[in-house]
């Protein structure tokens, strides 16, 4: 026998299921007006005052058969244009950094309208390239999938996460492609050819 560890274990995950939208995005689920103020409908507190470039990222979440899922729900979290996270000293007071968005029930396409994040220095002074963190849940996803959006028009060469990806072509799965001024395309592939790099951080 040994001493007992007095730490707890994390609660096990379960799938968010097909009806996750009623809980997290009631208006999307057809229950608009349920709450006076819905959470995460936009990452902006005041878009007209937010500093930095406003961008739109469009994409789909594809399952292992190549089908664009109609029921995926995604959350994003990011720092502001200066690399400061909401809640930290000096953060942009017009930017909340967190958004909930879902695939369109007809087309399977999502749009995230936000500010382009800045780079920041993490523990040990290591600089990360600008990125947005994502968390994807849906029916059939038993534990939420974490990934990141980087940008093809930023300098990504020294990013500590991208540099850990052994198979270099897979780095591209995390990089949004610029389609127009302020517009990007970012697709997520859950499985198979072009499978997105998912994170355990």
């Amino acid at each position: 026998m040994v001493q007992k560890l007095d730490v707890l274990q994390e609660t096990p995950s379960q799938t968010a299921g097909p009806y996750v939208h009623i809980g997290l995005m009631p208006t999307y689920a057809g229950n608009g007006g349920y709450y006076d103020e819905e959470i995460g409908t936009t990452p902006f507190i005041d878009e007209s005052k937010a500093r930095g470039e406003i961008i739109e990222i469009v994409g789909s979440v594809f399952d292992g058969t190549g089908w664009a899922m109609r029921d995926a729900l995604i959350e994003s979290w990011q720092c502001d244009a200066k690399g400061i996270f909401p809640g930290q000293d000096g953060a942009d007071p017009s930017f909340a950094g967190h958004c909930r968005f879902a695939a369109d029930a007809e087309t399977g396409e999502f749009t995230l309208r936000t500010v382009k994040p800045g780079s920041y220095k993490g523990r040990g002074g290591v600089e990360s390239a600008p990125h947005i963190s994502l968390w994807v849940v849906a029916r059939g996803i038993n534990i939420g999938l974490n990934t990141r959006i980087y940008f093809e028009d930023e300098k990504n060469d020294d990013d500590p996460l991208l540099n850990r990806i052994e198979q270099r072509p897979r780095v591209n799965t995390l990089i949004a492609k610029k389609t127009d001024e302020g517009k990007y395309r970012f697709d997520i592939r859950l499985q198979g050819e072009g499978e997105t790099v998912f994170l355990d951080i």
Binding site: D63, Q191, F198, D200, I201
Partner: peptide, 12 residues
Amino acid sequence: VARSPNLPLLSM
């Protein structure tokens, strides 16, 4: 079955 990654997660 079709909604689970085949490849290992990237840990750091």
